[in-house]
C-alpha cells in the first residue's frame, strides 16, 4: 500500500515513515505543507494520505482544508487526518462531503501503532474512522431532554462504536456479540433516538454523529 505523509514536524514524520516501512507500507512521499501535499498527490496519487491538521503557513487547520480538496480532486485517495483537536466540528467538516475513506484521529493515537495501522487500513478500504475520544465527548454530552437515558449500557456502547465508524461485524467482534444481537442493538438505538436507519456504514457514521452533535440538544 502506498502512503504519502504530510506533517511539518520532521521528527514525527520520520518516525511515522519508519514505522510504516517496518509494517510493510511504501512511503511514496513525505511533505511538510499543504501545497506540497496537493502537488505530490496530483503527480502520483497514493492509496492513502496521512495529514497533520496543523501545518505552515498559519498552523491552524490547513491540513483539514487540504484533505477536503483532496476529496474533490482525488476521490479514490483515502485521507487520514491527524489532529491535536478534540473539537467535533473539525471531524464533522471532514465527513460532510462524504465519509467513505476518511478518518479523523487524535495525534496522541499515533503512539498506539496497532490502532494507527488499523485506522490506515480502514480508510484505505473505504471506511470512515473517528477517534474514540471525539466520539465519547459527543456521547457524554449533557442534554436537557435526553433520549440517551433510554439506552441500555450495551446500546450506548454500540452507539459509540458506530460513531467511530465500525461495521456491525467489527462491533460484534469487539463486544463478543453475535451479528444478530448487534443488529438488534443497532435497530434499538436508531428507534429510541429517532435516527433514520441506513444500510450504508459510512452514511450511518454521519447520521449518528449529526444526531449526537445537534439532535439530542433541542429541548
Amino acid at each position: 500500500m502506498r502512503v504519502i505523509l504530510a506533517d511539518d514536524s520532521v521528527l514525527l514524520r520520520e518516525g511515522l515513515a519508519r514505522m510504516l516501512a517496518d509494517s510493510g507500507f511504501q512511503v511514496a512521499a513525505q511533505v511538510g505543507d499543504a501545497a506540497a501535499l496537493l502537488a505530490a498527490v496530483d503527480a502520483d496519487p497514493p492509496d492513502v494520505c496521512i495529514v497533520d491538521i496543523r501545518m505552515p503557513p498559519t498552523n491552524t487547520t490547513e491540513g483539514l482544508e487540504a484533505a477536503l480538496q483532496l476529496r474533490v480532486r482525488h476521490p479514490s485517495v483515502a485521507v487520514l487526518v491527524l489532529s491535536q483537536y478534540v473539537e467535533t466540528r473539525y471531524a464533522m467538516e471532514l465527513l460532510a462531503r462524504g465519509a467513505d475513506g476518511v478518518g479523523y484521529l487524535l495525534k496522541d493515537r499515533v503512539g498506539d501503532v496497532s490502532e494507527l495501522l488499523a485506522a490506515i487500513r480502514s480508510v484505505a478500504a473505504g471506511r470512515s474512522v473517528i477517534d474514540p475520544t471525539v466520539v465519547s465527548r459527543l456521547v457524554g454530552r449533557r442534554r436537557q431532554v435526553d433520549p440517551m437515558e433510554t439506552l441500555s449500557a450495551r446500546e450506548r456502547e454500540v452507539l459509540s462504536l458506530m460513531a467511530e465508524g465500525r461495521s456491525n461485524r467489527a462491533i460484534g467482534e469487539r463486544m463478543f456479540l453475535s451479528p444478530k444481537t448487534v443488529e438488534t442493538h443497532v435497530s434499538a438505538v436508531f428507534s429510541k433516538l429517532g435516527i433514520e436507519d441506513t444500510a450504508d456504514d459510512n452514511r450511518r457514521v454521519l447520521s449518528v454523529l449529526t444526531w449526537l452533535r445537534d439532535g439530542g440538544s433541542a429541548a
Binding site: 514525527l12 518516525g15 511515522l16 514505522m19 517496518d22 496522541d108 499515533v110 503512539g111 498506539d112
Partner: peptide, 10 residues
C-alpha cells in the same frame, strides 16, 4: 511527545 510515543511503541 507524540514522536516519543511512536518510538516507545516501535
Amino acid at each position: 511527545l507524540v514522536a516519543l510515543a511512536l518510538t516507545l511503541s516501535r
